[in-house]
């Protein structure tokens, strides 16, 4: 991080000095033409000056390259962090399943021994559904988004939330960077999970849809929730506004800011027992 700041500072310093020298150079030329405040041999001054400006500009190229390398490394580091979180989550799930597997095997063996085949079939069916949760589901075309969605879906499933994921297209033409897109989806999905957890288990539902029109990519995230009043919906993107209590209410505000920063649009709708957030981004 310190290196990044150092490079950034160097770039700023070099640029400021370049601008300063260029300004002086131009103004000095005006003064030369009027023979004001000039040494006797101005040519040597101009030569040194010109060389210095060229040198600074050439050095600027290397420094900016170095800076971009730092930014790239920083980006990769963040990406690895997301991957690591997801791997830990998956690892926990696998360990949980392995722990249960022995118990399952014992029960299957017991049912087989007792020749209770109907019960055994029911049990295996239920077991099959449980293991489905570990199947990789997501393929949006953006690995960062896949990881995030996989992670959030697993989290929701473990909290006994029914999840419906529909991806009808692949993202291959979107201008927004994956980090911003992840911030948006992550905030919306966290909110959806929090909202559904307030309901009874059989009413918990989250739907994630992704599709495209000729002009836009559209993401919708819907979830079951308690009935939201109209004035709550109208204020939902306001800073510090929250239905979850004080010192909250930054998530959706930040989401809206990021969406607008990327020329997108976000809307919210509510009907009876569910709320739907729709995010649209123009294709690049």
């Amino acid at each position: 991080m310190n290196n990044k700041y150092l490079s950034l500072k160097t770039v700023v310093a070099f640029n400021i000095i370049s601008v300063f020298l260029l300004t002086l150079f131009i103004i000095n030329n005006f003064l030369v033409s009027n023979q004001i405040f000039q040494p006797i041999d101005i040519r040597i001054f101009n030569l040194i000056f010109g060389l210095f400006i060229v040198l600074l500009n050439v050095l600027d190229i290397f420094i900016i390259r170095e800076l971009f390398n730092h930014i790239k490394k920083d980006y990769m580091y963040k990406l690895k962090q997301i991957e690591l979180i997801n791997m830990r989550e998956m690892n926990d799930l696998v360990r949980e399943q392995r722990h249960d597997l022995l118990n399952h095997m014992q029960i299957i063996y017991g049912l087989l021994k007792l020749k209770k085949y109907d019960r055994l079939e029911e049990y295996l069916l239920e077991f099959g559904k449980e293991t489905e949760k570990l199947k990789p589901l997501v393929n949006t075309g953006v690995p960062e988004v896949d990881i995030l969605l996989q992670f959030k879906i697993n989290k929701a499933l473990r909290l006994n939330i029914d999840v419906d994921l529909t991806i009808k297209c692949k993202i291959d033409n979107l201008k927004i960077n994956p980090f911003d897109l992840n911030k948006i989806l992550s905030n919306l999905l966290d909110n959806a999970i929090d909202a559904t957890l307030e309901l009874e288990e059989d009413k918990r539902f989250i739907g994630v849809n992704m599709f495209q029109t000729p002009m836009d990519y559209i993401f919708t995230i819907e979830n079951s929730c308690k009935l939201l009043e109209k004035h709550t919906l109208n204020r939902i993107f306001e800073k510090n506004f929250s239905t979850k209590g004080t010192s909250r209410g930054m998530g959706l505000y930040i989401v809206k800011k990021i969406v607008e920063k990327n020329n997108g649009e976000i809307t919210v709708d509510s009907a009876y027992d569910k709320v739907i957030f729709t995010v649209m981004f123009p294709k690049n």
Binding site: A13, I17, V19, T23, L24, I27, F30
Partner: peptide, 20 residues
């Protein structure tokens, strides 16, 4: 020091440009 350095150079540019 860095902020002062940048501000002095920038102000100098602005001042002499305005003067010119």
């Amino acid at each position: 020091l860095f902020n002062i350095f940048c501000s002095v150079i920038l102000t100098s540019c602005i001042y002499i440009s305005v003067e010119n």
